[in-house]
Design a protein around this nucleic acid. Sequence first.
DNA 1: CGAAAGTTTGAGTTGCTTCAACCGCGGTGG
DNA 2: CCACCGCGGTTGAAGCAACTCAAACTTTCG
Lengths: 225, 225
Amino acid sequence: MRHKTDLGALLAHQPLFRSLDAAQLAVMTAAAQKISIEKNDFVFHRGDPCNGLHVVAVGHIKLAVPAANGQQKVIDFFGPGDAFGEAFMFLDKPYMVEAQALDDSLLIWIDKQDIYNAIDRDPSFARRMLAGLSLRLHTLVKDIETVNLQNATQRVVAYLLSQPREADETRFPFNKGLIASKLGLTPETLSRLLHQLAEAGLIEVSGKRVQIIDSAALEARMYVA
Amino acid sequence: MRHKTDLGALLAHQPLFRSLDAAQLAVMTAAAQKISIEKNDFVFHRGDPCNGLHVVAVGHIKLAVPAANGQQKVIDFFGPGDAFGEAFMFLDKPYMVEAQALDDSLLIWIDKQDIYNAIDRDPSFARRMLAGLSLRLHTLVKDIETVNLQNATQRVVAYLLSQPREADETRFPFNKGLIASKLGLTPETLSRLLHQLAEAGLIEVSGKRVQIIDSAALEARMYVA
DNA sequence: CGAAAGTTTGAGTTGCTTCAACCGCGGTGG
DNA sequence: CCACCGCGGTTGAAGCAACTCAAACTTTCG
């Protein structure tokens, strides 16, 4: 017997739906669909019509803008509890990004109309959506700032320090190439900079694991030109 | 006697408030404040607390991220009918951008609580806010895509073609330096590229005016590496 | 008309990319 | 059990797009 297959229970645990009362939750549950998706499969492609939104229950999803020559620019990563694709839904525009599973994942999909119904019934649900979009906006502005005003080293350091860490150890949650793309760098450049920081005795890297040796010196690097 | 000083009439003309009924509009009008601001003055600075949102009635406002050495990165421009600063309001975070008037401008300011009240009363107002934020998000993603995946020439050409134009003529709405920053370029680079496009016979530039001579060839430049 | 701000042009520099080769590890099949 | 394959990552060398710095020119505006 598998666990976590009860859609209602699953929904109730998502931040977005916390404010719903039992009746609304029941309606939502009836409307929602579970979507299982395997690692590397796409949730949607650029240009696909957008009729609803997705919430990650299990796994991780990458949102990226595809480019001509097989390149891509990673916009962001989404994990359990995160909703994605709402903005395109509210705009009634096709997706301009693509979503791909980074692990075997379980998503919840909800139709646009049901979201609108929830908004109409429950202002606090509307507020939650607004807060979610605002947060996304905030993140994007920060990313724009980073790419435009910081050099490569500063971006890498800022990333390392922003990651959750225990006992001065953090890890790359995904392939370094994806992190590089998120930071607006090539994998080669990221590799070189990590090496350089290690050389300077500020960090130690082994695979996806990173030991922060001198966090004060790291922070200093964020502010020097 | 000055015109357009009636706050109620002013509000009723803003897209954001179109859906409000007379009673709600009256409440909003009572809550709203007019803010006159002179060219080059700041509406708010980075770090200021955010207790409400602004709507442009007259004039133009620049949102930008300030950098250390007097530099800045322009995020976007806002004109009549546009709301700005909502995202920070919904997040209850201080502004991380600064807003500066590019012309003598008239703004409408509305307190956070009044916005929340309007959301609670009128789901279609909530929808309007959601659509507004979504649009902003869409724009930012597009900007990120542009800066990361297109070279300088492609960005300039894309900008020129995206501007409103009449009889194959368009104009830079603001100083070229600001446009350059929005495009993630230095003023020098923008100047050189415009010169280059003119050299190639694709456009003619004189001051802020730009004649599109060969729009087909321009579009072609957006897709060549 | 003069000062200040904005824009252009030139010369030199550089940070990051590109291209290409190599390494190392995990998985797979012989 | 070990050889091989393939992919992610690293390293090196070379190039270039865009930047920086500096000076001249132009427009704006009091």
